[in-house]
Amino acid sequence: MTDEKKRETIKFFIGASTALGIGMLATPLVASLVGNRAAIFGEESTSGAIPVEICKSPEACPREFGVSLDELRGGPVFKLIKVNSMAIPAVFGLVRATDGREYPTAYVAICTHFGCPLNVSGGKYLTGFFCPCHGSVFAICNNPAGCDRGRFLEMYVQGGPAVRSLRSIKVEVKDGVVYPLTAYI
């Protein structure tokens, strides 16, 4: 009798651990097959990205968080922004759009593949990022009408193992200074 019970318990444990294993392997596969890329643009969900408010408004933002446009005209600028206990590695840059105008932007310089720090590519204007660890290449979509692989000013994956666009920082310009407002880390 007890032997029978023991056997049942062991069967249950083996079954449960097998199911857990198969489930862990299958969940992402199924999830990936059900969803498709077109849905990205459907809603403004930020699953996987944690919004962190840096400043409520440009007026409430300390000057050392901001980067002046004059400085940005010389090339992208790296700034380590410290909010509460957090450090956010931000790269500010000017993007030259296909309509000929310049747009101030900022991105979190952490690769969305493994989390390595990113190197900036581009000279005077910010054109993209390159990951030294596994070679992911991120490029800016600079067409105001949107691009094949991303929306306007989205730092989309151009190549390499990364699967999603770079996390961005919402910015606003005041008195010739670009201030970060909300970072999606």
Partner: peptide, 28 residues
Amino acid sequence: PKQVTPFTQITVPPDSAVPYVTTPSPVG
């Protein structure tokens, strides 16, 4: 090799990319 595999392309979750939340105003 660090190329994008078919697997990787499929596995982009629908809401993975954080789109630029507001379009900043042009400055020049």
